Simulated scan of single mutants.
Amino acid sequence: METGGGAAASVVGAAGFPWEYWVFDSVPERKTVKNRMHWDVTLTAPDPSDLVAAGAQVLREPDADISWWIMTDPGGNEFCAFAPR
Score class of each variant (00 low, 15 high):
53 A>P: 13
33 V>E: 07
27 V>P: 14
24 F>R: 12
25 D>Y: 10
31 K>W: 10
59 L>N: 14
10 S>Q: 12
23 V>P: 09
23 V>S: 03
19 W>G: 09
45 A>T: 13
34 K>C: 11
38 H>I: 06
22 W>F: 13
60 R>F: 06
50 D>Q: 02
66 I>H: 03
27 V>K: 13
60 R>L: 12
18 P>C: 02
36 R>C: 05
45 A>Y: 11
42 T>I: 13
69 W>L: 07
46 P>S: 01
33 V>I: 06
45 A>D: 14
44 T>Y: 04
52 V>W: 01
36 R>P: 12
46 P>W: 00
24 F>H: 05
29 E>Y: 08
40 D>F: 14
66 I>F: 01
43 L>M: 07
10 S>E: 15
65 D>C: 06
41 V>L: 15
39 W>T: 15
11 V>Q: 08
26 S>H: 11
40 D>W: 12
40 D>I: 15
18 P>V: 02
22 W>D: 09
47 D>H: 07
52 V>C: 02
43 L>Q: 02
11 V>L: 14
68 W>L: 10
41 V>E: 12
59 L>A: 09
20 E>T: 15
42 T>N: 13
57 Q>D: 06
51 L>T: 00
13 G>R: 01
69 W>F: 01
11 V>E: 05
24 F>W: 04
66 I>S: 00
62 P>M: 03
68 W>F: 12
48 P>L: 01
30 R>T: 12
27 V>Y: 06
16 G>F: 04
20 E>W: 08
48 P>Y: 00
58 V>D: 02
66 I>A: 03
24 F>I: 07
10 S>G: 14
12 V>L: 09
38 H>P: 10
53 A>E: 12
11 V>H: 03
26 S>K: 15
67 S>N: 09
26 S>E: 12
25 D>A: 10
55 G>F: 03
64 A>D: 15
33 V>A: 05
45 A>W: 10
34 K>V: 13
63 D>S: 13
35 N>L: 00
10 S>A: 08
17 F>W: 05
21 Y>F: 15
21 Y>A: 13
67 S>R: 07
66 I>G: 01
15 A>T: 08
62 P>Y: 03
14 A>G: 09
61 E>I: 14
18 P>F: 05
13 G>I: 00
25 D>I: 14
38 H>W: 11
65 D>K: 12
12 V>A: 04
57 Q>R: 14
60 R>D: 12
22 W>N: 03
47 D>P: 14
63 D>E: 08
50 D>H: 03
37 M>P: 14
66 I>Y: 00
50 D>R: 07
36 R>M: 09
47 D>G: 15
13 G>L: 01
65 D>I: 09
27 V>H: 04
62 P>D: 02
40 D>S: 15
48 P>M: 02
39 W>H: 11
42 T>M: 14
61 E>C: 09
69 W>M: 03
35 N>P: 08
37 M>I: 15
50 D>A: 02
10 S>K: 15
14 A>V: 05
57 Q>W: 06
31 K>Y: 00
65 D>V: 10
61 E>L: 11
49 S>M: 06
62 P>C: 02
58 V>H: 08
68 W>H: 13
50 D>K: 06
42 T>V: 13
11 V>Y: 11
42 T>Y: 14
50 D>W: 03
43 L>R: 05
48 P>A: 01
21 Y>W: 05
47 D>T: 15
28 P>G: 03
38 H>C: 10
41 V>N: 13
19 W>N: 07
29 E>A: 06
49 S>H: 05
39 W>R: 13
48 P>G: 01
45 A>V: 12
56 A>R: 07
18 P>E: 03
